[in-house]
Design a protein around this nucleic acid. Sequence first.
DNA 1: AATAAAGATGGTAGCGCTACCAAATTGGTG
DNA 2: CACCAATTTGGTAGCGCTACCATCTTTATT
Lengths: 342, 342
Amino acid sequence: MIKPRSRRGGGRPTISDVARKAGVGAITVSRALREPERVSEELRRQIQAAVDELGYVPDPNARALASARAEVFGVLVPSLTNNVFAEVVRGIYDSLSASPFRIQLGNTHYSGLEEERLLQLFGSQRPAALIVAGIDQTPTSRKLLESAGCPVVQVMETGPDPVDMMVGFSHLDGGRTATEHLIEAGYRRIGFIGARMDPRSQRRLAGYRAAMEAAGLFDPRLVTTTPVLSSVSLGREMLRDALAKVPTLDGVFCNNDDIALGVLFECHRASIAVPKTIGIVGFNDLDMMQVAFPSITSIRTHRYEIGRRAVAMALAAIAGNRPEQRIVDLGFELKRRESTAR
Amino acid sequence: MIKPRSRRGGGRPTISDVARKAGVGAITVSRALREPERVSEELRRQIQAAVDELGYVPDPNARALASARAEVFGVLVPSLTNNVFAEVVRGIYDSLSASPFRIQLGNTHYSGLEEERLLQLFGSQRPAALIVAGIDQTPTSRKLLESAGCPVVQVMETGPDPVDMMVGFSHLDGGRTATEHLIEAGYRRIGFIGARMDPRSQRRLAGYRAAMEAAGLFDPRLVTTTPVLSSVSLGREMLRDALAKVPTLDGVFCNNDDIALGVLFECHRASIAVPKTIGIVGFNDLDMMQVAFPSITSIRTHRYEIGRRAVAMALAAIAGNRPEQRIVDLGFELKRRESTAR
DNA sequence: AATAAAGATGGTAGCGCTACCAAATTGGTG
DNA sequence: CACCAATTTGGTAGCGCTACCATCTTTATT
C-alpha cells in the first residue's frame, strides 16, 4: 500500500509537482532550470510559470546527491575577525551571490592541523571549488587539495608552485618596498615589529631584512616579533619592548596596520614625535591609516579584489575554460603619508 | 544487468562499504554513528574500526536528503567586514566547530529585501537552526522565520516580541548610559554622531535623546547622522560637519568606535583638546579604544558571547529542551577612559 | 515457566534530484 | 522519398543515507 504523499519534510513542492503542473516530464523541468538552451522556448515558459506559481526552489541536497557535485565553494581562512580576511571573504561572497554557489567557510586559526581537518571535511562534500588562504599548506593538505577533483585557488600570496591557481601578491616585495621607503626617507635604525608570525609575516620580515642588508643597516636586535595574535594593544607593548632593546630606534616597519596604530598611539603617549623622531609604516592600508594623525604610510593590498578574482578564476575553470594565466599577481601600492614624511 | 560499482562520483567509501566490512547492516552503521548508545559496545567497536580503516566520512547531502533536515545553521548578518558581526560569527563558528553542524552565511547588506531573499533561499535547505541579526525583520521575513520549522535566534538586540529566542542587549539603554555618563562628566552641548542609521543605531540615538531630554539638554541640531556606511574617515568628516553646525559642541556620543576614532583623530588634527574641550564616547569597545591616546570611553558589548549563547540556545532547542529563558540580555558595560575624564 | 517489556539489529522503501540512455520529432540531403 | 543527423523530450535507475517498521534477542515480572 502506498502512503499518499507522505512527504517527510514539510510540504514543499518538488520537481515532480512542477512537472505535473507544466504537463512535462520531471527531467525536462530539471533541464529547463539548469540548461535552458536545451529546452524549447515554449516549454521553458510553461515550466517557468509553474515554478513561479508553486514557489518551487530546488533542493540543493538532492541536487548534490544526484550529481555528485555540491554547489558549494569551500573557503579556508586563518581568521574570521582579521579585517584582511574578512575583506577577502566579502569579495568571494559578493562574486558568488548571483550564482547558485554557496560558501562553506572554514577557520583554520592559523593551524596547519586544523586546515587538514577542514580540508578532509570539505572533501566529503564534493565542493565545486576550493579557495584557501596562503601557499604553505602541509604536505597532507597539499595532497588533499590536489585530489579534491575541483578547481583550487590559493589566495593572498603568489609563489612558484601553485596547486592549481593563485591570486595574491608578494609579501616579500611588500616588506622590502616598505623598508626601502623608510631608508630613502632618511631613517637608519629601522625596526621590524611583527605579531603572529605566520608565513606571510615571515616573508614581509624577509623583505625587510633584504632591504636593510642591502643598505648595510641590518641588526638582529632591530627585529621584535611574537607569535601572539596581532592587535592594536600589542603594537603598543611591542614598541615599548623594541625601544627598550634599541633606544636609538628611529623607524619601524610594522607587520600590519593594527600594530602600526598601536605604535602610533604609544608614540603619542610617550611624546615621541612622528615622523620626526620615529617613522612608521604599516601593512594593508586599512581605512583608518589615512585618517590617523599623523596619517600612516602603509602598503595597500587589494583584499576584496583578491576574493573577486579567485572566484572569477574558479568559475571559469568550472565552466571548462581554465584561465591561461594560473598565477595572478595583483601587486600592492606604497601609500606615502605623514608618518614617514620628514 | 547491474553495472558493478558504477560510483558516479569518485570512489569514496559509502555506508554499505563500512557495513560490509564490519559485517553488519547499513542501518546499524548509521545508528552507530548518530546514536551510539543504541548499538552494542561490541558492534560499535567493529564499526568504528571499519570506519577508520576505510576513512569513511558520511555524505552530508545524502543525510540531509534522507532525514529532511540539513546539519546547517543559517546565519544572517548585515555585514561581513564590520568587526562587530565578525565577532558574533566567530562565536557561532567556535561553538559549532565541535558539532556536526555547518554554517551557511548570508550577508544582508543591511537590506530587508536581501534578508527576505536569503531567508527564502535558506529555507530551501531545511536548516537545523537560524540565527539572524536584529529584531526588525520585515513582515515577510518574520513569516519566513516563523514557518522555518527550526529554532530561530535573533541576536544583537533584545526586544519584547521574539520570533522564538533572542540574545543581545538594549541599544537604547546603551545609548542612554553613554550619554548620561557625558552629562555627569560635566559636558553640556553633547552631540550624537551616527553613520549607517540601522535600527540599532536608531535606538542608540533614542537612548541619547532620552538622556538629553531628561537633563533638559536636547537640541535637534546636536544630532548628525548619515545613511552612509560607517568608517573611521567618515567619523572625521562628521565631526567637522557637527562642529560647523554647533561650534560650541563640547562632547560627542558616537554611534560606534570607528566613528569615535575618526572623531579623535580629527580633534588631534584640529588641535581640539580631548577630554578638555570635547569629550568622546564610542560604542562596542573594540580593542583599540583602550590603546588610543587619549584612551576612549566606550560601551563594551559582548559580541563573541552573543554568538556562543545563540548557538547554545539553538542546540538546546534542537536537542528538545528549549531553554526556559527565551530572551537573554547579556547587557553591556560602560568603560570609563581618558576621553571623558575632565 | 510463561509472558511481557525492553533492547538490539536488519530490511525495505523512499528523500528529490540528475546521469544515462532511449524514443520521438524535425530538418535537411542526395 | 528514403535516410541520416540533429534536436527535443521522457523513462529508468540510482546517488548515499535514514524513517519506519519488523524481527529477533535478552531481561525482567508474575
